[in-house]
Amino acid sequence: VTTYKLVINGKTLKGETTTKAVDAETSEKAFKQYANDNGVDGVWTYDDATKTFTVTEMV
């Protein structure tokens, strides 16, 4: 189990959250659901070296 981080650069929501998951794909699903639940829709990137997802909304 690995800890993954999500950085949110939204128009109205900014911040970070973490989750523990067995792999990046599992954490990505959880993070995308979290973003969707909070009305964040944007461009996703992933940095495997830091286990960090970033979602950026276009303004």
Rank of each mutant, 00 (worst) to 15 (best):
residue 47 D to F: 04
residue 56 T to G: 03
residue 58 M to W: 13
residue 7 V to S: 04
residue 47 D to Q: 04
residue 10 G to V: 12
residue 36 N to Y: 15
residue 57 E to F: 07
residue 17 T to V: 15
residue 40 V to M: 05
residue 45 T to I: 07
residue 13 L to N: 07
residue 12 T to F: 14
residue 18 T to K: 06
residue 23 D to F: 04
residue 45 T to P: 00
residue 47 D to C: 09
residue 49 A to W: 08
residue 37 D to N: 09
residue 5 K to Y: 15
residue 54 T to N: 04
residue 1 V to H: 10
residue 9 N to R: 11
residue 32 K to I: 07
residue 54 T to L: 05
residue 59 V to M: 12
residue 7 V to E: 04
residue 41 D to K: 13
residue 44 W to H: 00
residue 10 G to Q: 05
residue 31 F to P: 00
residue 10 G to E: 02
residue 18 T to I: 09
residue 40 V to G: 01
residue 35 A to K: 02
residue 54 T to M: 07
residue 5 K to I: 11
residue 18 T to L: 09
residue 50 T to I: 06
residue 4 Y to A: 02
residue 17 T to W: 15
residue 42 G to R: 01
residue 46 Y to L: 01
residue 30 A to C: 14
residue 12 T to A: 09
residue 39 G to M: 06
residue 42 G to I: 03
residue 28 E to D: 04
residue 50 T to F: 04
residue 51 K to T: 03
residue 59 V to P: 12
residue 11 K to D: 06
residue 13 L to H: 11
residue 34 Y to A: 02
residue 43 V to K: 08
residue 35 A to T: 07
residue 55 V to I: 11
residue 47 D to S: 05
residue 31 F to L: 04
residue 50 T to W: 04
residue 22 V to K: 13
residue 21 A to I: 03
residue 27 S to L: 04
residue 38 N to F: 14
residue 7 V to R: 06
residue 12 T to W: 13
residue 20 K to D: 14
residue 39 G to P: 01
residue 38 N to L: 15
residue 4 Y to K: 02
residue 36 N to A: 15
residue 3 T to E: 13
residue 3 T to F: 07
residue 27 S to H: 02
residue 51 K to E: 03
residue 16 E to W: 14
residue 33 Q to A: 11
residue 22 V to W: 11
residue 27 S to Y: 03
residue 46 Y to E: 00
residue 23 D to Q: 03
residue 49 A to M: 10
residue 19 T to C: 15
residue 55 V to F: 03
residue 49 A to P: 06
residue 53 F to E: 00
residue 37 D to A: 12
residue 43 V to R: 07
residue 14 K to E: 05
residue 6 L to Y: 02
residue 3 T to H: 06
residue 56 T to D: 09
residue 25 E to N: 09
residue 23 D to H: 04
residue 41 D to M: 13
residue 8 I to T: 03
residue 43 V to F: 10
residue 15 G to N: 08
residue 42 G to L: 02
residue 18 T to R: 06
residue 22 V to F: 12
residue 17 T to A: 11
residue 45 T to E: 10
residue 40 V to P: 01
residue 7 V to W: 04
residue 24 A to R: 15
residue 38 N to M: 15
residue 44 W to N: 00
residue 13 L to W: 15
residue 50 T to P: 00
residue 37 D to H: 08
residue 41 D to P: 03
residue 41 D to T: 14
residue 12 T to Q: 10
residue 12 T to D: 09
residue 56 T to F: 08
residue 57 E to N: 05
residue 21 A to S: 09
residue 38 N to R: 14
residue 51 K to C: 05
residue 49 A to H: 09
residue 32 K to S: 03
residue 24 A to H: 10
residue 58 M to T: 13
residue 8 I to L: 08
residue 33 Q to M: 10
residue 2 T to M: 11
residue 5 K to G: 02
residue 18 T to V: 09
residue 44 W to V: 01
residue 42 G to E: 01
residue 50 T to A: 06
residue 16 E to Y: 14
residue 45 T to K: 07
residue 34 Y to M: 05
residue 52 T to W: 02
residue 18 T to P: 02
residue 40 V to I: 15
residue 57 E to M: 08
residue 13 L to F: 15
